[in-house]
Design a protein around this nucleic acid. Structure first.
Lengths: 246, 246
DNA sequence: GGAACTTGTAACAAAGTGTGTCGGGACGGC
DNA sequence: GCCGTCCCGACACACTTTGTTACAAGTTCC
């Protein structure tokens, strides 16, 4: 009755070009019951976001290469992922820009880890319960091989328009694939991305879910065309995915 | 700008240390047929309360100097003056404290002026200081999948316009969903948001209310389209919600 | 006080999911 | 090709979560 599958501890991605900062911070977060990953620049951060399920990003605004701000903008615009910015100084400009772009909070360096932790918790609480603004209802519709998946309605329809019921696990798995087409994902990644769990020793749950999903969406589940098995590597979604507004 | 001698329209005092917020809000209230005054801190608020007949106070809980909470406590204890709190964030602590002290309602910043107006009217009506509105312009109407819910009248109508009776628990649950569409809410959150209770060990009351609500609003309660179950996670309202003036 | 209604609790049925096992197939060395 | 080893698909089964019904306690309104 204790550890429920539904709430694995939140996963924080720390993006900072200073190694000591990001590692210390990650250790501190983990010690306090969160999960944490690190990335040293925007490019690595993007990869990490694709490969694992992240609940919140702590982002240094001043980084070489792609600017932290542009990554932040991207995150806020696309994924509705909460972002906390780290700014070098208590510079009002940074602050205003950051909050304007849509960052959920910001912390100035040098910061107190405990304060940052408190803000992380506050943002997570807020984003998980705050009433939704009622403006842009974006119908996320994903098309692949005649199928169409309405992500916000959790509805899958075949070429004829008849809807096929998906269980939560199947829906989650399909979403994971559709967001990362033509990309080999191993079982651990899939498990993390779909449920947030860490793999057991001999974990066959992903195999099972893949099998169940294939039975529903493959013409011939024995000879899958969309969800291909990569021997020794995991699975890969091979169909073309087009997202298209309604 | 405000005092017309025998004007029965309710008088609202807005107390907030941010000038732009209180002025914008006051203008908005006036534009919508109320009288409004402003105060930038607790001391000014006390003076204003002595100087004019005020029907309701909108109070920022976070202010320098005398705390908003202490003013709130004073108001509630002495004058039976209705108070609506503004809180900086959806912070449970603030909320609990505020309602414990006796505030009549609370709104989290950033807030929708229209929502605040609706709550002001609701509180005034409740405390029976305001006559019934003459024209129901500001009835909050929420539309979803052919249905429409009149929040202030607690009235649900289907596509044909025939109304369906909801119990208060069902109404509360529906409101909670409509305010947070496309968002997974677990049972504890739903219980808190609808009743404010803390969950019992094996609490199935939410399941039951969901089931009852589905029976009323889903075309096929066995295959619900709007209130989807997230296995291991809770429930999610998947229909598009549009709010629309009458 | 009683009827109608609402709501929480218990109990059972149904669905979703993870684990274990078995057998077939892929891979690599011969 | 042959064969051992490992990986994967499928199935059965246990277990958890959820849907639904029934019922009792509480409430409201005559």
């Amino acid at each position: 009755m204790e550890t429920r599958v539904s709430d694995p501890s939140p996963h924080i991605l720390v993006v900072d070009d200073h190694r000591d900062i990001r590692e210390t911070l990650a250790r501190y977060l983990i010690k306090n019951g969160l999960r944490a990953s690190t990335a040293e620049n925007a490019a690595h951060a993007r990869k990490a976001l694709k490969a694992a399920s992240v609940d919140l990003v702590v982002l240094d605004i001043m980084m070489p290469g792609e600017d932290g701000l542009s990554l932040c903008r991207h995150l806020v615009e696309t994924g509705a992922m909460p972002v906390i910015l780290l700014t070098a100084m208590a510079d009002d400009t940074d602050r205003v820009i950051g909050l304007e772009i849509g960052a959920d909070d910001y912390v100035t360096k040098p910061f107190n880890p405990r304060e940052l932790l408190a803000r992380i918790r506050a943002v997570l609480r807020r984003t998980s319960l705050a009433p939704r603004e009622r403006d842009p209802i974006e119908q996320e519709l994903l098309h692949f091989d005649g199928w169409s998946l309405n992500v916000s309605r959790r509805e899958l329809k075949d070429a004829d328009g008849t809807s096929v019921a998906l269980s939560s696990g199947e829906f989650q798995l399909l979403c994971t694939f559709l967001k990362r087409p033509k990309m080999v994902l191993n079982r651990d990644q899939l498990l993390d991305l779909t449920t947030g769990r860490t793999p057991a020793v001999f974990d066959r749950s992903i195999d099972n879910q893949v099998s169940r999903l294939r039975r529903k969406i493959e013409a011939d589940p024995k000879d899958p065309k969309m969800i291909k098995t990569v021997w020794g590597g995991g699975y890969m979604f091979t169909a073309d995915v087009k997202d298209q507004a309604e």
